[in-house]
Amino acid sequence: MGVGDPFGMPIAHGMAAGMGGIRTAGDLVARMQMTRKMRINEAKAYVADKLKVSPTDLSNEHVMREVREELDIGIITAVPGCAKGIEAKARIANLLGVRINSVERLKSKIR
């Protein structure tokens, strides 16, 4: 989505139909669309399988908060010690079996 003030555009769409980002599993489903061209239901099924939850649970905060914390793949609130940024992405890449460009770059830098 493009032009539109923050409240009226990204927040409104996010509330109405969004996956929820790292509050839930939106970033993970997005990565499957981006890296494997998966359609929405296929991407949800894939991620749900990897996370050992149901596809409906992918947008359920009550489930996903705990799952993300256990798997240490980045959570929405600022908890010291939880993986953030590149750390979280490295773990997401392993979990989903996808290549994340910035993670590969970091690995090449520290090899």
Partner: peptide, 20 residues
């Protein structure tokens, strides 16, 4: 306001970056 039924959520991508 209305919303999708649970389970029908979709992925959001954005244009214009943080310009908004």
């Amino acid at each position: 306001i209305v919303s999708v039924e649970p389970g029908n959520e979709v992925v959001l991508t954005h244009d214009i970056g943080s310009l908004r």
